[in-house]
Write a protein that binds this DNA or RNA. Sequence first.
DNA 1: GGCGCTCGTTGGATCGATCAAGGGGGCAGC
DNA 2: GCTGCCCCCTTGATCGATCCAACGAGCGCC
Lengths: 347, 347
Amino acid sequence: MGRSEHRGGIQLPVTPTTLADVAERAGVSRQTVSNAVNKPDLLRPDTLERVRQTIAELGYSPNRAARNLRTRTSSLIGLRFTPTQEGTANAAMDRFVHSLVEASEEAGYAVLLFAADDEDPVGGYDNLLRSTAVDAFVVTDTYLGNPQATWLTQQRAPFVAFGRPWDDDAARHVWVDVDGAAGTRLATQHLIDRGHTRIAWIGWRKDSPIGEDRRSGWLTTMHDNGLPTTGLASRVEDVVHSGAEAAAVLLDESAPTAFVCASDTLAMGVLHTLWIRQLAPGRDIAVVGFDDSQVAQVYPVGLTSVRQPLEDVAVEIVRTLRQLLSHQPVETRGVLLEPTLAIRESS
Amino acid sequence: MGRSEHRGGIQLPVTPTTLADVAERAGVSRQTVSNAVNKPDLLRPDTLERVRQTIAELGYSPNRAARNLRTRTSSLIGLRFTPTQEGTANAAMDRFVHSLVEASEEAGYAVLLFAADDEDPVGGYDNLLRSTAVDAFVVTDTYLGNPQATWLTQQRAPFVAFGRPWDDDAARHVWVDVDGAAGTRLATQHLIDRGHTRIAWIGWRKDSPIGEDRRSGWLTTMHDNGLPTTGLASRVEDVVHSGAEAAAVLLDESAPTAFVCASDTLAMGVLHTLWIRQLAPGRDIAVVGFDDSQVAQVYPVGLTSVRQPLEDVAVEIVRTLRQLLSHQPVETRGVLLEPTLAIRESS
DNA sequence: GGCGCTCGTTGGATCGATCAAGGGGGCAGC
DNA sequence: GCTGCCCCCTTGATCGATCCAACGAGCGCC
C-alpha cells in the first residue's frame, strides 16, 4: 500500500504507489493494470482509460527493481567511461556519451557508467554481468588485442563495439565504426580542390591500425590525383610537440603547402610551428585536423577538421543492441559511417 | 537453481547462480549465505570460510534486482548528462564525470546517466525517482533559478548539488562548489607577482552569479594591491569572438599588459586578438583563462588557466551523499574547494 | 436455448534477495 | 544430570512486478 503522511502541510508519499494500489482504486486486478502499462491493446478502451486515469491520479510508476527481477532485464546499458587523456585534444567521449544517452533513452534504456582499474580489464564487466545489473554493454576502447571484446564474446554477453576488430578476423561480434580513411580522403581532396599539390601527412605510429587507416585515405587520394607522397609523411606520437617537430622537419625537407593530420592534437603542433615561423595558417599553409574537437572549434584561426558522426554512431549502436536483445537476427556484422569535414579558416 | 548447459565444450551458465544454489552446495541456509556476503562477522569463521569458498567455486554474485527490490535501494546515483556546448572550451563535464564514477565506485555506487528535454526539466528526475531507479542525484546545472534543486527538495529526494544556490537563501540543500573568486585571485596575484600592474578582466554578463564571483576575485586582488581597475573590465558573452572584441577594445582604450578571463573560451578570444596584432602571448601580453580545458593544454603557446579540483569535488559529493543516504546528520550544508593555477607560457 | 468461441479479467505462483523470528546445540552453573 | 543462556543458524514471509493457467461474460451460430 502506498502509505502517506502529513508533514509540513503537504502530503508526501512515504511508500511509493504500487500496482496493487492502482488496481484497487480502479476496481480491477493487478494484471489488468500491468497490461494497461505494457500491453494496452489487450484492454477494452473504457477500462484502459479508467486505469490510465487512476495511474495519473496516483502518480504511479512501476517499480524498476520488481520489474527487473521478474523480467530478468534491467533496461540499462553499461559503458566503461574512459576520460580524455590530459594534454590531448580528442574529446570524443563527451559528445559520444551524450548521443548515446539520448539514443538509449528513446529506446527505453538508460546508460550505466562504470570505471575499471587497469589491472583487471574485465573486472567491471564481470561484476555487472553476473549480478545482471545491465542488459548489454557498449565497448569503446577496441584497441589492438583488447581483451574485453573477446571476453564478452566468450561470456555470450550482448554488446556492440564502437570500433572495428582490426586485427582479429575471428572476432564475431557486432560493431559500428567511422570510416577514418574516408575522412582523410575528404580532407585531402578538399585541399587538392583548393589548389594544393604538396600535401603532407602527420599521423600516429605504425602499430595503430586506426592511424594506418586514416593514413591510407591521404595516400590513396594523393595517388588518385597523381600527386607525390614520398618524403611527405611522418609518423609520431599523439602529442602536440611531436606534431610541431614533424611539421618543422617536413617544412624544411619537403616544402609542403598543406598538412593533413591524424588528430587535432597533431594539427595543434603544426599550427605551433607555423606560428613560430610567422606563417599564417590558411593563407600560407593549410592545416586539417581530425575529430573536430573543441580545440578545433575555438582555436583563434579556426581549425578545419574531420568530424565523426557520433550522433549517428550512437543511434546505430542502440538500434543494433535492440536487435541483439530481442534475439532478432542481426542484419549486419559491422556498420561503417561516413565522417564529414568541418571547414574553417585554417584551410 | 543455476542450470547450465554444454555448448562448444565450455560449460556456460544459462541461469546465473543464486543464493539458494550456494546454500545447498555449502550445506547451509540461504540466510547464512546472505550474511556471509553482507554481515560476515555474524558467522563462525569456519562456516564463513566454507561459504566463501563455495561462492568462489560457483562464481556467485548477488542478483542486483532482487537485492534492490528487497532493500529498496539501487546503489545507483543519477546524473543528468549535459554535454559541452559546441564552440566553447568548457569541457568540465568530461573530467568531472570520470571523477564521479571513480569516487562512486569506491563507495559501492554506479552512475546512471540520463537526458532531459528542455521542456520538462524535472521529467527525467521524476521518472527515476518514482520508479526507485536511483538512490540519489547529483545536480550539476545549478544556474540561476534552476528548478531541479527546488523540485528535488520538495520531493525530499536525496541529492547533492555541484554549485551553490546563489540566488536562493531559502535553499536548504547540500552543495559542493569550487571557489571561483579564489581562482581569479590566484590568477591575478600570479600576474602581479610577475610585475604586471594594468591587469584587465574579461568576464560574463552581469546576470551570471558565477561570472560575478570570478570577477570579484580579480577586483579584490587589484584593490588589495592598490592597483587601478577602472576601464579595465569588460562583460561579454561566452564566445570566442566576443572575447576577441573585448580584448581589442581594452587594448586600445586602457593599454593593459595582462588579461584575466572568466573562461578559456574568452581567453582564446584574447589570444586571437594578440595574434592579429602580432603581440606575443606571455612575452608582450599575459593571458590567464579559467577551467584548464583541453584547449588551454594543447594550445601551441600553452594557456595558463585556473584548474578546478574536480576530483576532490567528486569525492566530496560522494562522501556527502553517503551521509545523506545513511540518515546521518550532514556535517555541513556547503563545501567550498580551492582551485589551483596551471601555469603555462601565456603568463 | 444451448454450445462453443473469443476477449478480458482473475488469483496464484514466481523472480532472488533480505527481514524478522524461531530453533537447536554447546557450554557453564548449580 | 538438569536448567538456562547465548550464539549460530534456519525457516517462513516479504518486496512489487510479470507469467501462467483458468475463469467468466458476451456473442454468434445452429
